[in-house]
């Protein structure tokens, strides 16, 4: 059985310009201990998808489909049952660590409160575990840090603290939404190492969301590519990089500047830009930018079709 499976998940948001479909029928499954990368450009629905899994959507959002976690549909859970699930079962790390940190509480208080809310430990034990967690995420002098406030730390240190809090109750699934986008490349490498090490050590599943294909290449078991609210291709990581089938994936891979190409090499581009998510289109959302598009592409939406070895893609004329 999958740890997590999404079935026909949709998220609609009312906006002044009309209904905005942020997530458009996503089917996805993730097994325990696996790392899945979700890649896509700004606005394609990555954050809305992760918030839908976490049941942390804006109030006015309307959700369709099912979010099955360990066999139960968590979109049907009452708030208190959901609260019990978050932390020990499902945890999250956001791009901006301040989204999950409280600016007026010390790091120590926040760690201890989380630990005590979910685990049967006394204050002393909670402090001991808090210090241990800070050390595990690579924070120097963890005892002193327990007494500091988030603003006294650098961006990289804050993200480490947010990860420590997310890991504190030993979740079975961690959702990391662009956890390193705001960080420098050397700090990013450290945070990605940390997440990889902890997922291995804890046999924890992770959804690693990013717009950077480089981030998922070496650190995921599978990758799903998102475009205009839909998963357009999903495959084991090596298969996706070596043999993309959907033209958008192919174009995205080609557009990355390569470290081994000669200076002033012209980059392949994807002309145009993603469609307006408040306008529904009948056919493939990538059609206006796709160089392989044919007449049928604008008529019907291609579904995510299964092929061999877990590689699926949504395209009428695959590569």
């Amino acid at each position: 059985m999958s740890l997590l499976s999404l079935e026909g998940l949709t998220v609609d948001l009312p906006t002044p310009r009309g209904n905005l479909r942020a997530v458009d029928g996503v089917d996805l499954a993730l097994a325990a201990g696996q790392t899945l990368g979700i890649v896509g450009e700004s606005g394609c629905g990555k954050t809305m998808l992760s918030r839908a899994i976490l049941q942390l959507l804006p109030k006015r959002a309307r959700v369709g489909g099912r979010v099955m976690f360990e066999g139960q549909d968590i979109s049907k859970l009452r708030p208190d049952a959901l609260r019990r699930l978050r932390g020990p079962a499902l945890a999250v790390v956001f791009q901006d660590p301040m989204t999950s940190l409280n600016p007026v509480l010390t790091i120590g208080t926040q760690l201890v409160e989380t630990l005590q809310a979910h685990l049967a430990v006394d204050g002393r034990e909670a402090v001991r575990r808090g210090v241990e967690l800070l050390a595990a995420v690579g924070i120097p002098a963890p005892e002193q840090r327990m007494g500091q406030y988030p603003h006294q730390l650098s961006g990289g240190m804050r993200q480490r603290v947010a990860i420590a809090i997310a890991l504190s109750c030993e979740p079975r699934l961690l959702i990391a939404d662009e956890p390193t986008t705001a960080l420098d490349v050397t700090v990013q490498a450290q945070i990605l190492d940390l997440l990889a090490r902890e997922t291995r050590r804890r046999h924890m599943a992770m959804i690693l969301i990013t717009h950077d294909l480089g981030v998922v290449a070496g650190r995921t078991d599978e990758v799903a590519v998102m475009y205009a609210g839909r998963i357009v291709e999903r495959a084991p990581t090596r298969a996706l990089f070596h043999g993309p089938r959907m033209p958008y994936t192919e174009a995205l891979l080609a557009a990355i500047p390569k470290l081994d190409s000669a200076p002033h090499t012209r980059l392949p581009t994807i002309e145009g830009r993603p469609p307006d998510p408040t306008r529904r289109m009948p056919g493939c959302a990538f059609a206006p930018r796709c160089r392989y598009a044919e007449g049928d592409c604008v008529v019907g939406k291609p579904g995510l079709g299964p092929v061999d070895a877990g590689h699926e893609f949504a395209c009428w004329h695959p590569r």
Binding site: Q188, G214, G218, R238
Partner: peptide
């Protein structure tokens, strides 16, 4: 430190 877009590295 650059994350390389190559799954074999």
């Amino acid at each position: 430190a650059i994350p390389m877009p190559d799954p074999d590295i």
